[in-house]
Design a protein around this nucleic acid. Structure first.
Lengths: 149, 149
DNA sequence: TATTTCGGTTTAATAATGAAACCAAATTTA
DNA sequence: TAAATTTGGTTTCATTATTAAACCGAAATA
């Protein structure tokens, strides 16, 4: 593989996000974290990931500020992993992936999980709007270059 | 690697999405496709991806219905790749990744691209709402299991 | 106290990726 | 129109990433 190319220097924010969490396991770990998992063994059981890889991924996610460790009990040998504020900001990414999956990757009537509002039980949707709140379609948008603030 | 675990059977729509487009290159190709790239060589130049890997990824994305080939010219030896309707439904995923990147992965004042509405030049935002349109926070949501439709 | 669980690390095998060389068909240039 | 270049790959080989399995000490549980 000769050092996978980093996109840290890319001016495209999507590319930088993918550089940070675009590998095979990281977003699945984040998904599990949103589902409330916190322990090494829980992630390992949930994902079936090799333990050394999980170790490395958790370390990277912590390094990048997406997860943080919380000592459990008196000792420092046991830790839990939880989302940081930055990590919680990945929520829209998760919802977007979920929405795409629901729409395109399930047979009609096939069992799947659903994200709903706690209080009302209403399904959660995601939509794209202009800053002033008008819903907008993809083809009404365009990328511009921002020179600097 | 002994066959990377497939998540096709997972009941979580996010996991299925990641199974479909969660590898290192696919979403970057999709991003480029949203940016208007269509030719093999354009993707190759843009991403710096090895050609054999690009070949394989394009084929997979076509197989999965995210891209489709369009013959260019009279012959069938040259093709272009364009997003299908399903592929275009990945737009919210791209916007979510972009929003996360903008928020967390750039220094203040650092140059980056920006997604705006064509007509007004207003920045595009993404938000999460209930089905009936009320904006909602991540911690007000919960996953439920849908047995069947 | 003995046993099991937890959170890893190490090792060896296998799979995925990358770089480079190569190629035929199409296109462009001279 | 002949030659050179571009396009869209394929093949081969070296390197890196991932896996499974064995192992480990500390902590928790029985």
């Amino acid at each position: 593989m000769v050092a996978r190319r980093s996109l840290k220097g890319d001016y495209c924010p999507s590319a930088r996000s993918l550089d940070a969490i675009g590998d095979w396991w990281s977003l699945l770990i984040v998904r599990d974290a949103f589902d409330g998992l916190r322990r090494f063994s829980d992630f390992q059981k949930s994902l079936g990931i090799a333990k050394n890889i999980l170790t490395e991924r958790l370390r990277t996610l912590v390094d990048r500020g997406i997860l943080e460790t919380v000592p459990v009990g008196e000792t420092k040998a046991r830790v839990e992993y939880q989302l940081t504020a930055m990590g919680r900001d990945l929520f829209p990414v998760m919802v977007a992936l979920r929405q795409f999956g629901e729409r395109h990757l399930f047979q009609p009537g096939e069992e799947h999980s659903l994200l709903v509002e706690k209080q009302t039980g209403l399904p959660v949707k995601l939509d794209i709007r202009t800053q002033d709140g008008r819903p907008i379609e993809a083809d009404e948008t365009v990328l511009i270059k921002v020179p600097e603030d």
